[in-house]
């Protein structure tokens, strides 16, 4: 009974929002931490605090936290955590396009397998 079509439009929207916020947050932190002009120690933190990236990252994570609670309240927890695994894929793909991180064959295999698993649960849910 509990497995019968729990993916409503609201659930789908929350799932997409979660992926976008998680990936966006990670990339914002990466941009903040990877700034070569930031210096060291306290100066580095001051440099980061004066720019939007760090705050964008924190803001994304705070909203994602709430989105995730709403999402999990509408689906069985098993499906929720399995569907949430897509975040791993999204971050790797985004890192590839934005920071030129390489995708080795093993990584591509991992990405495809995780995506397949999420698809199986999503279609059946």
């Amino acid at each position: 009974m509990e497995a019968a079509s729990s993916i409503t439009p609201l659930v789908a929207a929350l799932w997409v929002l979660n992926v976008v916020l998680d990936t966006g947050g990670q990339l914002a932190f990466k941009a903040a931490a990877g700034d070569k002009n930031a210096g060291d120690g306290l100066a580095r933190w001051k440099h980061m605090a004066a720019r939007p990236w760090l705050w964008l990252g924190i803001g994304s994570y705070v909203i994602e936290f709430l989105v995730w609670i709403a999402f999990l309240s509408l689906v069985p927890l098993s499906d929720g955590v399995l569907l949430g695994s897509i975040n791993i894929v999204a971050i790797m793909v985004a890192g590839r396009f934005l920071f030129g991180e390489k995708l080795t064959r093993l990584r591509v295999a991992g990405i495809l397998l995780v995506t397949l698993g999420v698809a199986i649960v999503g279609v059946a849910g």
């Binding site: 791993i88 991992g110 990405i111 397949l116 059946a124």
Partner: peptide, 20 residues
Amino acid sequence: HLTLPRVLGAVAIVAGIVCL
């Protein structure tokens, strides 16, 4: 319940995580 889609999905995801 550990339904078939959940188990199959979990197996694929865990295999993917091990690859990564």
